[in-house]
Amino acid sequence: MIRFDNTTKRYSEGHEALSSISFDLNEGEMSFLTGHSGAGKSTLLKLIACIERPTRGQVVVNGVNISKLRKSKIPYLRRNIGIIFQNHQLLFDRTVFDNIALPLVIQGLPHREIGRRVRAALDKVNLLGKEKLYPVTLSGGEQQRVGIARAVVHKPPIILADEPTGNLDPELSAEIMHLFEQFNQVGVCILIASHDIDLLNKMNKRIITLQQGKIIYDGHEMAPKSYHNHENIQ
């Protein structure tokens, strides 16, 4: 589903954010991306969503080579990806319903179909009955769930989440992770960037650890000790 092949990303100011990264994420695979801030997590996610292009090597998403993708085709690639942001990125002048409906409106779905799908997504994140409210009136956890509903409403085969539990307490975080597991069970490929080590270790999923733009660990065991130490020093 997602393949990095010797991918290097160097920013114009010379900083190398990713150096020769290679890994594969299969269809229906759920994995975590971890590492301290500045390790290249965000850059990696940006390459998948084609917000940045690789300097060298290849990134293939859902069979599409990012480096060769024409600019006018980027929107259609992004429709295959549901992106969840740490700060939710909701539109505060629109209701919960309108926020979640946005990906469907962009794709030009008929009105009735939009209503049906939005309510299904609201049901999944347990927010039925709040569709007419504005995001400001919701709690942080609820806002994040609106963000998740928006990311999954058009049933993308890939979900990317950038620190989705960053501002939430452990209980809410566990709830959100449980949601992701549910999506994963229906075959969605999920990649979650997080530095919440305790939470990752509880999930027992594949963990990819980045350090200074390189993969230093890729496996299903607990996050490596060296990374813990690094985090503790900071």
Binding site: P75, Q89, I106
Partner: peptide, 16 residues
Amino acid sequence: HDEILITKLIGATNSF
């Protein structure tokens, strides 16, 4: 500005 950014991330075309 923010709205435009978000819709672009969700897959809105330029004409949209």
